[in-house]
Design a protein around this nucleic acid. Structure first.
Length: 591
RNA sequence: GGGGUCGUAGUUCAGUAUUUGGUUAGAACGCCGGCCUGUCAAGCCGGAGGUCGCGAGUUCGAGUCUCGUCGGCCCCGCCA
C-alpha cells in the first residue's frame, strides 16, 4: 500500500491554507449525510477537520457513504473556506474544510464496543477492557500529552540544575520493611527471588556515596498492596537525591521543580516558598496529614470547655485522655435529619461512636445535647466557633486519632457538598516535624514512619532507645490539594546512627547485616551527608489534568483488584515454566 | 481481611423498595435500511437487537425474594 506523505495533521489547517492540495490521515469520527452532500469529521490526536464530499464525483461519493465510524482513512483534497454562515466557532479548523478528491480506506473498523467520544458513556470496566479505544478519546489523549509535558518539564528543570539522570535495577533484593514486594523467581538460583523495587531508595543513597551528588530518575515502583483511586501496583516516582544538603535545600529545590512543572503544563505560577505546617498542627487543625488548603475550613478545639461539661460523654472523654473538637460548616444547618444520620454513619469507619451537631437559626442554637450544656458552655461555643445564621457545628469526642479522622472526613466531604471552595487553584504546603517512628497496630511494634534510613533530628538521637516515640525525623512531605505528592528526608549517613535506628525498630544486628549489610558497609567509606525526595508522578499529573483517579492518566492501569482487563493478566503459566523455576503451586483450600 | 455501592439490548440507564413476585422487560445513543445539498452530538421515517453477571434455592410463577459466587468502583485496614 502506498502511503503518500502526510502534509498536515487534522488540527492545523486554517484559512491560510486555502487552495492547497493536502494529504490527510485520520480516523472517521462523526458523519453527517444530507443525501446530496456528505460531511465527515476526520480525527487524529491533533484535532478535527471537516471533509466534504459532493455528488458530482459519484464513485467517490458512494465510497464515502460506505465509511463507518473509526475506519482509518487517507484523504486527498483541497482546502477551501467554508461559507461564512457555516463557520464552526468551536473548532480551531472551523473556518475551512477539505473538499475530497480521493479516499482510501486503509483499514476498516468493526463497530466499536462504545462510542469514542469525550463524554464518558462507557463504564470504567469497559474502558479498561478496550483500553486502546478508550485512549483514542480526545480527553484521554489530552491527559497522556500532559503527562508527557510534565515528564519533559521535570527533566528540563533537573538537568538545568546539574542533576544526572541515572537508572537503577528493576530486579533487586527483597527488603523486610515497608510494602509487600512483588517477587521474581530466579531460574539460575532456584528457590531464590528478586524483588521489584518499591522505590530505588537504597540505590540512590549508594549513588551519593559513589559521588554522583545530584541524581534523579523517573523511576517505576512496585508495591503489592491494596489499591485506591490514587494507588496502582506500579507507579512512577520522580526520584531525587542530593549530597551536602539540609532539609531546606531539598525543599527549595522541590519547590522550584513543582513550580516549573505546573507552569509548563498549566501556565500557573506558584508562590514560593510554600507554606509549612507541623505534622501535629495539621492533624489538630485540619484532621489530616494531607490537608486541602483550598478549603477555607478549620477545626477548633473544645476540650477545655468539655472537660467540665454537664454532658457526661464530653467530660468522661476528656478524663480518659481524649479530645473534643468541632468544625463549623457555613450554611450547613440545611442538612436534613437523614443526612445527619448518614454523616454519623460515614464516620463509623473511623471508629467514631457519635456525631454531635449544633444548628444555628438566627440567634437560636438547637442541638440534641443542648439541654446538657450550661449557659457558660454555650457562650464559649459561640466565642470559639462564631457561628452565623444557617451554620452548623459538628463535634466529635474521642481519641485524638478518631477525632482527627472523623472531622477531617467531614471537612472535605462537606466542603464538597456545599461547594465551599474553588477547585481551580493549586495550594501546596509542606508537612514537617513528623515523628521518626510510629507504633504499628497490626504488627504490634515500632516501625519507621517514613523509612528506616530517615535521619532523626540530632538533638533527639539520645532518645532513640529510651523514648523512641518522641524522636522527630528530618523528613518533609509535600501536599497539594489534599494529596501527598512528594515525601523525603535527610538520610542517616553515619553508620552508628543508622544502627541505632535499626535497633529502635527491633531489627536485630544480624538481620540488619543480612538485609542491609551492603548499605551499612557503604556508609563506612566516606558517605557524604545526603537527602532527597520522591514525587508521586501519577498523582501530580492527575492533579494537573484535573482528574480524580490516577487511572485516567496511566495508559494501561490495573483495576482495584490489580487485574489488567485488556490482556487478562495475571494469568496461569505452563507447568514447564514453573518447573524450570523450581516452583510448585499449593492448591487453595476449598478450590 | 472488612464496609458500602453497582452489574438489565452493542453502550449508558429506567424497571427491583412500603401499592405485594404475574402475560409480549422499556428509553436514549449506537447499528442496519430509507428520505434528505451546509451539517458539525445533523434531522426525519422504519427495523433488528436481551442467558436481566453466573449458580443454586423459595414459589404455580423470579429482573424483582434468599443463599452462594464472579467482576467494576469508593472507603477502612494496608501502602517503610
Amino acid at each position: 500500500m502506498e502511503i503518500p506523505k502526510r502534509s498536515y495533521n487534522c488540527g492545523e489547517l486554517s484559512v491560510q491554507n486555502v487552495g492547497e492540495s493536502v494529504h490527510l490521515y485520520g480516523w472517521v469520527y462523526h458523519r453527517r449525510h444530507h443525501g446530496g452532500l456528505f460531511f465527515l469529521d476526520l480525527r487524529d490526536r491533533y484535532g478535527l477537520i471537516q471533509v466534504v464530499f459532493r455528488p458530482e464525483n459519484a464513485k467517490l461519493f458512494s465510497e464515502a457513504e460506505n465509511l463507518s465510524g473509526e475506519d482509518v482513512i487517507y484523504i486527498k483534497g483541497v482546502v477551501v473556506q467554508r461559507p461564512v454562515d457555516a463557520f464552526n466557532k468551536d473548532l480551531p479548523t472551523g473556518e475551512v474544510e477539505v473538499l475530497a478528491e480521493k479516499l482510501d480506506v486503509l483499514n476498516k473498523s468493526k463497530v466499536p464496543p462504545f462510542q469514542i467520544e469525550d463524554e464518558v458513556k462507557a463504564t470504567e470496566e469497559h474502558r479498561l477492557e478496550w483500553r486502546y479505544l478508550d485512549l483514542r478519546r480526545p480527553i484521554m489523549q489530552k491527559g497522556i500529552i500532559q503527562r508527557h509535558k510534565a515528564a519533559q518539564a521535570t527533566r528540563e528543570y533537573l538537568n538545568k540544575n546539574d542533576f544526572l539522570e541515572i537508572e537503577t535495577p528493576i530486579l533487586m533484593k527483597s527488603t523486610p520493611e515497608g510494602a509487600r514486594d512483588y517477587l521474581v523467581p530466579s531460574r539460575k538460583h532456584k528457590g531464590k527471588f528478586y524483588a521489584l523495587p518499591q522505590s530505588p531508595q537504597t540505590y540512590k543513597q549508594l549513588l551519593m556515596i559513589s559521588g554522583y551528588d545530584r541524581y534523579y530518575q523517573l523511576a517505576r515502583c512496585f508495591r503489592d498492596e491494596d489499591l485506591r483511586a490514587d494507588r496502582q501496583p506500579e507507579f512512577t516516582q520522580i526520584d531525587i537525591e542530593m549530597s551536602f544538603v539540609n532539609p531546606e535545600d531539598v525543599m527549595e529545590m522541590a519547590e522550584g521543580l513543582l513550580s516549573h512543572i505546573i507552569f509548563k503544563t498549566r501556565g500557573i505560577s506558584l508562590k514560593t516558598p510554600f507554606l509549612k505546617l507541623k505534622y501535629s498542627d495539621a492533624l489538630t487543625r485540619y484532621g489530616s496529614d494531607k490537608p486541602d488548603l483550598r478549603i477555607p475550613l478549620e477545626i477548633q478545639d473544645f476540650s477545655d470547655v468539655a472537660k467540665n461539661s454537664g454532658f457526661k460523654i464530653f467530660a468522661s472523654c476528656i478524663q480518659n485522655g481524649g479530645v473534643v473538637r468541632g468544625l463549623k460548616i457555613p450554611g450547613g444547618a440545611q442538612l436534613s435529619r437523614s443526612e445527619l444520620d448518614q454523616l454519623a454513619k460515614d464516620i463509623e469507619c473511623f471508629n467514631a461512636k457519635g456525631l454531635v451537631n449544633f444548628k444555628i437559626s438566627g440567634a437560636e442554637i438547637s442541638s440534641p445535647i443542648l439541654k446538657f450544656l450550661s449557659e457558660g458552655e454555650i457562650a464559649k461555643l459561640r466565642e470559639i466557633y462564631k457561628p452565623g445564621d444557617g451554620d452548623i457545628i459538628f463535634m466529635v469526642a474521642d481519641s485524638e486519632t478518631v477525632v482527627a479522622n472523623s472531622l477531617g472526613f467531614l471537612l472535605t466531604h462537606l466542603a464538597e457538598r456545599f461547594n465551599l471552595y474553588s477547585k481551580e487553584t493549586f495550594t501546596p504546603l509542606w508537612i514537617t516535624d513528623m515523628p521518626l517512628l510510629e507504633h504499628s497496630e497490626t504488627e504490634d511494634r515500632l516501625m519507621a514512619t517514613h523509612h528506616p534510613f530517615t535521619a532523626p533530628v540530632e538533638k533527639d538521637i539520645p532518645l532513640l532507645l529510651e523514648n523512641p516515640m518522641a524522636v522527630k525525623a528530618k523528613a518533609y512531605d509535600l501536599v497539594l490539594n489534599g494529596f501527598e505528592i512528594a515525601g523525603g528526608s535527610i538520610r542517616n549517613h553515619k553508620v552508628d546512627v543508622q544502627r541505632k535506628v535499626f535497633e529502635a525498630i527491633k531489627i536485630s544486628e544480624s538481620e540488619a547485616e543480612e538485609k542491609f549489610g551492603f548499605l551499612l558497609n557503604a556508609l563506612q567509606f566516606g558517605a557524604p551527608p545526603h537527602g532527597g525526595i520522591a514525587f508521586g508522578f501519577d498523582r501530580l499529573v492527575m492533579l494537573i489534568a484535573g482528574e480524580t483517579s490516577i487511572r485516567n492518566i496511566i495508559p494501561f492501569p490495573k483495576t482495584t483488584t490489580a487485574l489488567s482487563l485488556m490482556d487478562g493478566s495475571p494469568t496461569t503459566v505452563k507447568p514447564e515454566q514453573l518447573e524450570e523455576l523450581g516452583i510448585k503451586l499449593i492448591k487453595e483450600k476449598g478450590k
